[in-house]
Design a protein around this nucleic acid. Sequence first.
DNA 1: CATTCGTGAAGACGAAT
DNA 2: ATTCGATTTCACGAATG
Length: 318
Amino acid sequence: MDGRSGTTVRRTQESTERETSEFTCPECTAPLQQDETHGETTCIECGLVVTEDEIDRGPEWRCFNAAEKEDRSRVGGPTTKRLHDDGLSTVIDWQNSDAHGNALSSKKRQQMQRLRTWDERFRSKDAQERNLKHALGEVDRMASALGLPEAVRETASVVYRQALDADLLRGRSIEGVASASLYAGARQMGTPRSLSEVTTVSRVEKLRIQRAYSYIAQELGLGVELADPHTYVTRFVSDLDVTHEVEQIGHELLDAGNAQNVHSGKSPVGLAAAAVYAASRLANQRVTQETVAATTDVSMVTIRNRYQELLTAYEIAE
DNA sequence: CATTCGTGAAGACGAAT
DNA sequence: ATTCGATTTCACGAATG
């Protein structure tokens, strides 16, 4: 809005946002995805093109210079669903002048200031609550799509609220932070879903989710602290029905590896699983890599790579 | 036959630019 | 914010017992 007209009232302008369809594919009932560059609506799963003529949600006019802007401008901005009132609400201008550009009297100015204060209060409060409602709805939707339990949704909601309170949403989309919160919640509750799994039910690209996650995880200090491998060993041993001897050797193996700097950068769970496997061999209570991998949720490959390193470290330490 | 081992491709994560 | 390097995982086939 050009300042010289000195209007005291104008309308909010919000750019329209990319929307993803709520509908599902007629073939496989997977959610649909809109590819705006090609103007197609396609199914995420089977790639079925549902419709090719898409509605342009952008403003009906464009302008490339000031003259065109004068010509083409209409009253009011484009409406948007992102604001609770579709962007149609009245906003009080900051200029202390009336519609003709004349300065206001001091009494009027005070009046306007009070109006602004209250206008801002109502509007921001409302916006925040809508924001929260929207985000929590998304968390719920994605969580149920992934079959995650109630507890995860709770923690995800808590994470989101914390992020909101800490003012971490600047420049990040609600959807992105909501997805990241769910990812974080699932991880914290010990039922992690991979980033790509979250992506399939989210409406945001994977990269955005990852960035939002790393950011809020750092700022909120909800670092998923990496656990001591020893704590895993105890649990794995009892799960695997092997003797106490195996557990002892496992701990020794880990200590030896620790002394030889095998631990750096490796996942604690993988180390623990490898230690248990190696210990079972040393104690003549062979368990297959496969069963260890199954009970520990560590791949056989990692166990292979790790347990040899642990064994050599153990030999050296002897 | 079961188990183990090795490999390349792909994903996830942290650090650096 | 993108890029890079190290690590882990998956899928497969070969080797070993």
